[in-house]
């Protein structure tokens, strides 16, 4: 999917479906990408997506899974800061899938 269309607007994505322009992101775009990824967005999903966006805003990178897990544990509590919880929400990987929905680039070092 080179481009996606949401509410009549076209957004540029790369060949893996990541938004090309960070500034393009909004919740409708997130919902659309989540549907493509077969992720049913709940409050718990949004919590992780918003956390990722905040992380990116502060550090200008998408965190590696290990780093994301630890950071979520610190902020949202240990019951959420573990890979089992995060993989249940995002079965194809919290970093890859959640970053994509959050409109961030693929995490550095994630192949």
């Amino acid at each position: 999917m080179p481009n996606i269309e949401v509410n009549g607007k076209t957004y540029e994505t790369d060949e893996e479906g990541y938004l090309v322009n960070l500034g393009d992101w909004n919740t409708d775009v997130a919902d659309f990408i989540a549907k493509v990824e077969n992720v049913d967005m709940t409050d718990q999903h949004w919590e992780v997506v918003n956390f990722l966006r905040q992380y990116y805003d502060e550090y200008q990178i998408a965190p590696a899974v290990r780093v994301l897990t630890k950071a979520i544990g610190k902020t949202l509590g240990p019951e959420k800061g573990n890979s089992q919880y995060l993989y249940e929400l995002f079965p194809y990987g919290p970093a890859k899938q959640a970053c994509k929905i959050a409109g961030l680039p693929k995490p550095t070092g994630c192949v």
Partner: peptide, 14 residues
């Protein structure tokens, strides 16, 4: 140019 200086503060988390 992308300002990558905030990323140095993320190193601790890594």
């Amino acid at each position: 140019h992308k300002n990558f200086s905030p990323t140095y503060r993320a190193l601790e988390g890594y």
